[in-house]
């Protein structure tokens, strides 16, 4: 979530509340789990890391608010995150946010990210299949390998769905 927030700030500066609204919009129903406490804690950490800068803005009727913007280091960090093809457990959510961020910031082409990710996962699937072939069929290892292979297949099929959506967006 941290990098997704940073990417949103790389697109345009925002205060905490706006940022939360944008996250919720990008996440759909999963956005329900994003509470504002988390947002402010994460913003604090990003600021400490030098990836965002908070600017106090005076308001006449309400208390001052803090608007956050991405620093050059922050933008660099987002670009690196977009291109990182490791596949953590929360992959679908994280990757979806990556695509949203890529399109919003223009730092990467969503369809190219999908292609690169598919390539990476097919390579892994190939290795897992080869390992499974060389394993005795009744060995315990086969089940683990089958589990990984099935996960990878599901992820690759999901990437196909992503590709359809993002190709259509790019064309339209």
């Amino acid at each position: 979530m941290r990098e997704a927030m940073l990417a949103m700030l790389a697109k345009e500066p925002a205060h905490g509340y706006e940022l939360r609204q944008r996250l919720i919009q990008a996440l759909g129903p999963i956005g329900e789990v994003v509470n504002s406490g988390q947002i402010y804690v994460t913003l604090g950490r990003l600021e400490k890391a030098g990836f965002v800068r908070g600017v106090q803005v005076e308001q006449s009727a309400a208390p001052d608010k803090r608007v956050y913007e991405a620093t050059p280091e922050g933008r660099e960090h987002v670009a690196a995150w977009l291109l990182d093809a490791s596949w953590p457990k929360v992959a679908p959510t994280e990757f979806h946010l990556k695509l949203v961020a890529a399109a919003a910031t223009g730092l990467a082409d969503p369809v190219a990210l999908i292609d690169a990710q598919r390539r990476e996962l097919l390579r892994r699937l190939r290795e897992v299949q080869l390992l499974a072939e060389s394993e005795p069929p009744d060995g315990d290892g086969v089940l683990i390998l089958e589990g990984s292979a099935l996960r990878l297949q599901a992820d690759i099929r999901w990437l196909e769905a992503c590709e359809q959506r993002w190709s259509a967006r790019r064309a339209g």
Partner: peptide, 20 residues
Amino acid sequence: PRVAASADRLLTMRDGQIVE
């Protein structure tokens, strides 16, 4: 994906062209 991953090499097509 299983069949694709069994190959040594992958060609990706889009709109009649090999894009990868």
